[in-house]
Design a binder for these strands. Structure first.
Lengths: 140, 140
DNA sequence: AGAAATTTGTCCGTATGTATC
DNA sequence: AGATACATACGGACAAATTTC
């Protein structure tokens, strides 16, 4: 098969598979992942594709890679979130429009809005807070 | 020269060069970067190397890439732009942390924060308001 | 509306450099 | 010194999105 990539790219499905093994404990925390050469054999893919998959996991802080040594599963057994003693990283709540938001949405002050808040962290510390406001009803 | 990468990797020097052009204004904000094919010719490098360089700029929010269109220099400093309608939907301002934000960032109440607000529209009507809060100082 | 050209996305295979064991 | 493993780089091929004609 030269390059038929319908739907999801191969490197992403490979990343998903490896993620499952890590989160399920098949690859325990701190353990060494199979070498890239081994993964090319298992997934029948080129090394570049394997490296793309691992790059995704590295971006998600699920693994760390060391030059001549290998790629390790994240040492801390972090679940989806937790860590740092805060609440969850994703949170929804209903709020009412203040004068500013009311003007933006062109609705009356006090109109119900859905606020969705998510946090992005870096080494445990909160790096950014993103709040998204939407009107409740309506949908397309 | 097939593959001698002493010192700094080629993709990194290429990224530095492109970064200079963007920050110096040689490539103005919002402008299209040369196509990857053009860059391979200019830097006498393989396409993969060029793409690695651009990936660095994308990571730094200096450029955004769209599939069949090209890679654009970031419009202003850094910002999650998007949306096709009015470009002036983006707005930055400095605010002070209330009790809630202070708790999230683990700073004192009143600490200066940068608030970045962007709107997404649907047929002219505001569909969502996204507000991103970040600490002012510090950088990596 | 349709075809062609452009441009980025994905994938392959190979070769060589560099760090670690 | 040798083996193993990740890093960098090349070149080619096809897929998918966009623009142009």
């Amino acid at each position: 098969m030269p390059t038929p990539h319908y739907g999801q790219p191969r490197y992403r499905t490979i990343a998903d598979e490896l993620r499952k093994r890590i989160e399920s404990g098949v690859i325990p925390p701190g353990a060494l992942l199979p070498a890239e050469s081994a993964l090319t054999a298992e997934f029948r893919s080129a090394r570049g594709t394997i490296r793309q998959a691992i790059a995704i996991l590295r971006e998600a802080d699920l693994v760390v890679t060391a030059h001549g040594r290998g790629t390790y599963a994240a040492p801390r057994g972090d679940a989806p979130w937790r860590d740092g003693g805060s609440e969850t990283d994703l949170q929804k709540r209903q709020v009412t429009a203040d004068v500013e938001l009311a003007a933006i949405f062109d609705v009356d002050v006090g109109t119900a809005l859905l606020e969705q808040q998510s946090l992005t962290r870096r080494n445990g510390a909160v790096k950014a807070v993103v709040r998204t406001y939407r009107l409740l009803e309506t949908e397309s």
